[in-house]
Structure formats: structure tokens, C-alpha cells
Design a protein around this nucleic acid. Structure first.
Lengths: 206, 206
DNA sequence: GACTTACGCTACTACTAAGTAGCGTAAGTC
DNA sequence: GACTTACGCTACTTAGTAGTAGCGTAAGTC
């Protein structure tokens, strides 16, 4: 409320930027993106929902694309990435990830992932951002859990390994889409089968 | 070239409608739909690609939605539906469907399916049409092949049953999306697992 | 050849949404 | 209180696209 006399590199006079509302704006943007596709996503609607002026949003994020990119970056990394669940059984490890409250829980999170897949079609920058900031780290969690389980442990729980598809698939699809493949969805699904399902099955021999 | 003297219910005088170009228009529309999402799909572009006048297209299909619906209907039913492949092994039966030239082969077909999934978000009529005219009959092929295989035969070919996912998933997703579920993509993936993967696995006991 | 209907073309309207300009005011610093 | 910067508001420009109007001509029937 006081502090910082002779300032940091950048001068600080006049009304300060209201950073406190950034989080609200970005989460609302993400929310809207989960409801609509990128084309129907409008900056006006974000402004209306947050009670901000459209012009204010444009001062902070010069284009709609920038706003969406910021919203994606604001997602952050899944907390499980730092502390992989270690509950003792593969099944509960997987469920711990699936039922993580990250991004509002499984239901909302999967809905958001699905929308991000749509968005990757509209902008290469968005496609790259989704891949790097959301998909890769998230898929990585499953990769690590599965590969850890492949070395022994709870190798019998075949059904729960298959169920992981329910969450891995939307995540991985963003991984592949927009990378220039001719038939991204087929490539993607084949890769899910080859990289996730079959290895999981092979290591599960009751 | 002559025939039909005192006509059918509808009079036939004046320049006849050029039905021959309908197929071209609808296939071009489908092609465009595979490239763009519904929002970016423009009637002007279809007109440009087919060499037709936009007004001519609007005379035949009063709205963009009607044009897209017609394009979906023009897809027709997969030929395998009438003569289920019977090659002797489950694996080759499945591959026969996957590699069917229908809709331009697996690559283009899957790409079209993916686009139709996007389109279901924009119109309930389109969602219904996709489900009824494309998804249901196509998924039905896999259901029938899998259930036939479940009764004996080639029950050992577990990997090929899993591979079927690579094509079933995009098809089934249209089946679920747009039906008012709160988290359609999660529901869909769970249903794939429950209805297709697990039963296939259960019936495969080497 | 008279008639009728379809087609192609060139506007045009209506609407939506991205992005901007400019003003008055709020919220700070000195 | 003077100064400075951010915010909110209204209004605007620009661009793209769905859908329409109206005209001249093509392609048929009688």
C-alpha cells in the first residue's frame, strides 16, 4: 500500500493497472471457450460477463487471438505433474488424476479440452499453445503412470487401464491436431491405440 | 430423350432443372465442410468451386443449413451395411470396413467424420441428421461384426478388435454429441469404452 | 415462333463481430 | 491540488457473409 520509492525500471505513476481482474477475465474467457467454438467466441461476450469494458480488454490483449492465448496460458500445469499420485494401486492412481479438481473437475475439464481441440483449427499459434501448455504435460502424467505400472505392481487391473481412454483421448487429440497431418483424427486414434492401449494390455497378463 | 406425353402430377415445361449438377454441388459442399468448420463454410465458396451462381444454389437450398443437410444426406449409407464382409477372419472383416473406399477411403472419410462432429455444435437439425444418416448405420457395421465374432470364430484376435477404435470413435462421437449432455465428450468416450472396448475384450479369451 | 422456367450475373440489404477513437472520470503519485 | 495513467462508455469504421431483387439469357415444351 506504500513501498517502492524510487521505482523499478518502469515508472509507476497514475492509476495503476487493475491486475486483480485479469484472472477473472481469463477464466471467463476459458469458460466461454468451453461453451462456444472459436468463431462464436466474442470479446464482447467476455466483456459482458466480466462487467469490463470491451475497450479495456482490447487495451490489455490487442486481439481476440491474444486473449484466447492468454486464457490458455492461464490454465497452468496440472498439479499432478509435480507430485505424481502414489496411492499404491494403478487403478486409484489413474482415478486420482481423472478426478483431479484441476480445471473444475473431470466433467468441466474434458469439456474444455474438447473446445480447445476445436480452437486449434482456427489458429496455428493456438494449436501450438494448446499442445505445449496443456496437452503435453497432461498426457505425460498418463504416460508416466502407465509406464510405472508396466513394471510390475497392479498389473491385473485391465479394465481401469482401458477406462483411462476416457480422459486420455481428448487430451491426446490436441496433441496431434493441427500438426499438418493429412488425416489428423485417424493418426491420432491409431497412435492412442499403439502408444497407450496396446502397451497397457500387453503388460496386463492375469 | 422423349417419352412422358401428358405428364406426371407436376407440369414439365420451360427450361428443366439441371439435376446433373446437384451431385457436384453436394460433394463440393461436403469437401468444403471437411476443410472448414461450419462457421467458415460459406455458400459463396461452394458456388465458386462448382462454377455455379450463388443465387442458383439458394434457389435449390433456401439456407446454408439446408445445403449442409443435403450434403449430409447425399453421403448415403456405407455399402458394407448391405453386404457385411465375410472374409473368414475377424481381423480382415474389420480391415475390410476400415479400408472401404466409401467416402474416398479411410483417410478422407475420417476427416469428414471429424468435421461433421464440429458441425453438430452449430445446429440441432444437423446433429440429428449426422446421427441418423451417418453415424448410426456406420457404427452398426462394427457392432454387427463384433457381435458376430463374439460367438466363437476368431476370438483370439484381440489387437485387431482394439484397432477398431481408430475408426469407431469418430463415428460414435457424432452419435452422442449435441444431445444435451453436460459433458458430451466425456460421456461419449466412456460409452465407447463401455459399449465397444470392454465387451470386445470380454469376449476375447485366448 | 410463343411460352415458360432455370440459370448466371450484378447489385443490394441486414447483421454480426473485430478493432478503434475520443471523451469524461476514477485512482493513484508527487 | 497538480499530474498521470487506467478504466468505462458511446460511437464509429471495417469486413465478412447470409440471403434477396431484378434483369438478361439459355434451354427446354407446345
Amino acid at each position: 500500500m506504500n513501498a517502492s520509492r524510487s521505482d523499478s525500471p518502469t515508472r509507476r505513476t497514475g492509476r495503476p493497472i487493475d491486475r486483480s481482474s485479469d484472472a477473472l477475465v481469463l477464466s471467463s474467457a476459458l469458460e466461454l471457450l468451453a461453451e462456444r467454438d472459436y468463431e462464436r467466441f466474442t470479446v464482447d461476450e467476455v466483456a459482458a460477463r466480466t462487467g469490463k469494458a470491451k475497450t479495456t480488454l482490447y487495451r490489455r490483449w490487442p486481439t481476440k487471438e491474444d486473449l484466447v492465448l492468454a486464457a490458455i496460458s492461464a490454465i497452468g500445469r496440472p498439479p499432478e505433474l509435480d507430485a505424481l499420485p502414489e496411492t499404491g494401486s494403478l487403478r486409484s492412481d489413474l482415478l486420482a488424476v481423472i478426478d483431479s479438481p484441476w480445471l473444475g473437475g473431470a466433467s468441466r475439464r474434458t469439456s474444455i479440452f474438447a473446445s480447445l481441440i476445436f480452437a486449434t483449427r482456427n489458429s496455428e499459434r493456438i494449436a501450438r499453445a494448446v499442445r505445449a501448455e496443456v496437452t503435453e504435460p497432461y498426457v505425460d502424467i498418463y504416460r508416466r503412470i502407465l509406464s510405472r505400472a508396466a513394471n510390475g505392481q497392479d498389473a491385473a487391473d485391465r479394465a481401469s487401464r482401458i477406462r483411462v481412454l476416457a480422459e486420455v483421448i481428448p487430451a491426446m487429440s490436441t496433441h496431434r491436431l493441427g500438426s499438418g497431418s493429412e488425416s489428423p483424427s485417424r493418426d491420432f486414434f491409431v497412435s492412442v491405440v499403439d502408444e497407450v492401449v496396446l502397451p497397457a494390455l500387453m503388460s496386463a497378463r492375469p
